[in-house]
Design a protein around this nucleic acid. Structure first.
Length: 469
RNA sequence: GGUCCCAUCGUCUAGCGGUUAGGACGCUGGCCUCUCACGCCGGAAACCGGGGUUCAAACCCCCGUGGGACUACCA
């Protein structure tokens, strides 16, 4: 029987969850779900100076917003240092690691000198055979193999061969007694029975050292899969310079989590020509074979398109819930039923929830402010009488539904032999203050008869006032 | 500098020796239409270069070139 698949996502809590991390998490999560395995979350907080609880919370929030639930964790690496230290002692006892008293300053100087001389800046082995004892500020180094090769069998990139002499004696325990990343990650992945390490390909160069560590410790080496980076529009690694990179910033901008997930999964992974995937489809279809080797540029336009797609398909009640924090003050306390109608009107024409709230501002105001050009261009004396007549006839209209209004306007136009076109824009401006809006009939139904009549009368007054001036 | 990775439309990608090189975003022409959006129909747009291997190369190999990552007592 084969071991149950276990993947993990291991962010360091030194900031929010960013787009790249989210995709790594997503791939791990999908791979685990697809194979009926488990997904473990581990917070790598051994850097005491940079890690914060705040970041941990932010990461957890973002994961849960995306729907990436874990089966285990979060584990905290810093709480496992006893384990790490025990392994350090073991390696020292076996002669596979040694104490080193070279100071950071000395090392830095040597590194610079080597670089200046055009040589490789690796540790020169000063303390390698000194058989030093532990002392204040001493670090522990892994005694690496200096000959032979190490092959990383990568599920995405294929086999990658490294000469062991390229690998120097890396520090596994710092002067402050905490383990370094390359060591802790090996111990934890091994002890947590992680079977597949799926992570960013910025880690490929660390992998041979880690493999050597697994072997020195007597652990089974897991499978590795290195996912290519996500780049910004200038092809450099995605960073704040390129705009929003925090997952939660997308929530605040009015994106739906399924849109982000769908977008992210298509960065590097494909299933034929399919673009739209439900979460269940992703779980069924996801595989590492279909993950590409080359880096991908983050394209906000496509994300927007997907978001619009998911907004169109979402239930109104759900959108209403998601949009609660996004409304401006004036609309926040509106009648929920009214708000839902507004959302229904805007739903097919917005790319983000935030955009919906902005576009829908006119529904909630007491009286309309005509947009600069709109009032001047469409609220003209020529249409004055039409607007007056409509305002006059509306109270008697029995069926104030979309169909009823449509029919009313049609008849109205036929009676006086004018095209709907003639009256539509003025009416739109009267009702919304803009030249662009949802359909007149939709707006009227949502607004309700009373508000519609009031707004038309306001427009009538506006035209009369301007005519006098 | 060294090590490693990568290379199909502007972007995300399909392609896994024989295709009119397909789809999607974006751009664009048209239709629909009360504006906008949606939707529908059409268009422009790509195999980085050079050598091999082969009857045949976007696909395999080599060399260039270009990008990226790593090179910490960060993760």
């Amino acid at each position: 029987m084969t071991k149950k698949t276990r993947t993990r996502f291991a962010p360091s809590p030194t900031g929010f969850l960013h787009i790249g991390g989210a995709r790594t998490a997503l791939f791990n999560w999908l791979f685990a779900r697809h194979s009926g395995g488990q997904f473990v979350l581990r917070i790598e907080d051994t850097d005491q100076t940079r890690s914060t609880d705040e970041s941990t919370r932010a990461i957890l929030d973002a994961m849960s917003w995306l729907g990436l639930d874990c089966d285990e964790g979060p584990h905290f690496q810093a709480q496992r240092v006893d384990l790490h230290r025990e392994m350090v002692r073991k390696l020292i006892a076996e002669g596979k690691a040694y104490y080193c008293t070279c100071t950071a300053e000395e090392l830095e100087a040597k590194r610079k000198a080597a670089l200046a001389a055009g040589k490789k800046p690796k540790y020169d082995g000063t303390c390698r055979n000194k058989d030093l004892k532990k002392s204040a500020g001493s670090v522990v180094r892994f005694r690496g193999a200096q000959t032979g090769i190490t092959i990383v069998e990568d599920l995405i990139k294929g086999n990658i061969t490294f000469n062991n002499d390229e690998l120097d004696d890396l520090i596994i325990e710092r002067g402050d007694g905490y383990p370094t990343y390359n060591f802790a990650v090996v111990i934890d992945d091994a002890l947590m029975n992680i079977t597949h390490v799926i992570r960013g390909d910025d880690h490929v160069n660390n992998t041979p050292r880690q493999i050597l560590l697994y072997q020195a410790l007597g652990f089974a080496v897991p499978k590795f899969a290195h996912v290519p980076m996500i780049l910004g529009s200038d092809k450099a690694r995605l960073s704040k310079r390129h705009g929003a990179t925090s997952v939660m910033a997308y929530k605040e901008m009015g994106f739906l989590p399924e849109a982000l997930v769908n977008y992210l999964v298509r960065l590097g992974w494909a299933h034929g020509d399919q673009e739209i995937f439900s979460l269940q489809e992703l779980i069924d279809l996801f595989s590492l074979d279909a993950v590409g080797k080359s880096p991908a540029v983050f394209n906000p336009e496509k994300l927007l398109w997907l978001n619009a797609h998911y907004i169109k398909g979402a239930k109104i009640t759900r959108l209403a819930e998601e949009m609660k924090p996004l409304w401006p003050e004036g609309a926040k306390n509106a009648d929920p039923e009214f708000t839902q109608k507004v959302i229904a009107d805007m739903q097919p024409r917005a790319k983000t929830l935030l955009e919906m709230t902005t576009l829908a501002d006119f529904y909630f105001v007491e009286s309309i402010n005509y947009a600069n050009e709109a009032g001047q261009k469409f609220l003209l004396p020529e249409v004055l009488q039409h607007l007056k007549d409509i305002a006059e006839k509306l109270p008697a209209l029995p069926d104030f539904s979309k169909a009823g209004i449509e029919n009313f306007l049609k008849t109205f136009g036929e009676e006086r032999n004018i095209k709907l076109k003639i009256i539509a824009q003025p009416l739109r401006v009267a009702l919304t203050g803009k030249t662009v809006s949802p359909g007149i009939d939709e707006v009227m139904v949502t607004l309700g008869k009373d508000r519609v009549i009031k707004r038309i009368n306001d427009a009538v007054r506006f035209i009369e006032t301007r005519a006098k001036a």
